[in-house]
């Protein structure tokens, strides 16, 4: 049996109902070939069970999405990749090649690492899963009936998609006591204060000469100003306590 190292990270695709992998030729054959294994997906009833479980357990959903273990899957969505080779097909043309088995082994490892993928394989990909659960929640959440929830929900609608006008925003900030406060991402602004580039690389950019055809030495004049300004700026930079 060949080592199945080649299956990892080379295009192993886990899609609903199928595992497949494209392999470059490698040692054996010169052509790339594709291995795929069909997997039986969840029947609607079982699918419902899985969804129902997740609807009832947001924490489990989180854990699933965060890639943490999900023991409950074994019960509700068991998957055994043993002996699935019957549904395997390999385009390498060899009969009884171990590619499928290798694929299964690799897949098993991946699935163990990412339980969510199992559901994908079983016909419940992430997007569909989330859409279904959130839809169910939307129906389950009681309609806003007065109180703080309604207040802020309506507030969100009031401000609508466009947000508060500048004046309203200022008034809002004043009311909330943050009139003087810069936005939260001010600290993320990256400013690089380094010495100026050599004079010949200084700007300003632009075809000024063409704007002023009747004037001689446009670039020189501009260069003079640029040099002077950068020199001044450099003096300031040096004087800073950095």
């Amino acid at each position: 049996m060949e080592s199945a190292g080649w299956a990892e990270g080379i295009g192993l695709a886990i899609i609903p109902g199928q595992l497949k992998v494209k392999v470059d030729g490698g040692k054996e054959s010169s052509e790339p070939h594709e291995v795929s294994v069909q997997v039986k997906m969840l029947n609607p009833a079982d699918r419902e069970k899985v969804l129902a479980y997740l609807e009832e357990d947001p924490l489990a959903l989180y854990r699933l999405l965060a890639g943490q273990d999900a023991a409950w899957l074994d019960e509700l969505a068991p998957l055994s990749l043993e002996g699935e080779t019957a549904e395997a097909s390999c385009s390498c043309g060899q009969a009884a090649c171990g590619h499928a088995a290798a694929l299964l082994a690799a897949a098993a490892r991946q699935l163990a690492a990412e339980p969510l993928q199992r559901l994908t394989l079983l016909g419940l990909p992430r997007e569909a899963l989330l859409a279904s659960v959130f839809d169910a929640w939307a129906k389950a959440a009681p309609p806003a009936a007065g109180g703080a929830a309604a207040e802020s929900a309506t507030r969100a609608k009031e401000k609508g998609p466009s947000g508060p006008s500048p004046g309203e925003w200022v008034a809002e900030a004043a009311a909330e006591g943050r009139l003087h406060r810069p936005g939260p991402q001010l600290g993320e602004l990256a400013v690089q204060l380094s010495p100026p580039p050599p004079a010949d690389q200084l700007g300003p950019a632009g075809d000024w000469t063409s704007l002023l055809p009747g004037v001689r030495g446009v670039s020189k004049a501009l260069g003079l100003v640029a040099r002077g300004a950068t020199k001044q700026a450099e003096q300031k930079r040096r004087s800073l306590k950095l």
Partner: peptide, 21 residues
């Protein structure tokens, strides 16, 4: 900073990409 919404209002609206303020 002015945004504050209850969890209920998030769950209650199934639209996943929302424009708020």
């Amino acid at each position: 900073e002015g945004l504050l919404m209850s969890a209920r209002s998030i769950w209650g609206n199934p639209v996943s990409d929302q424009m708020i303020r």
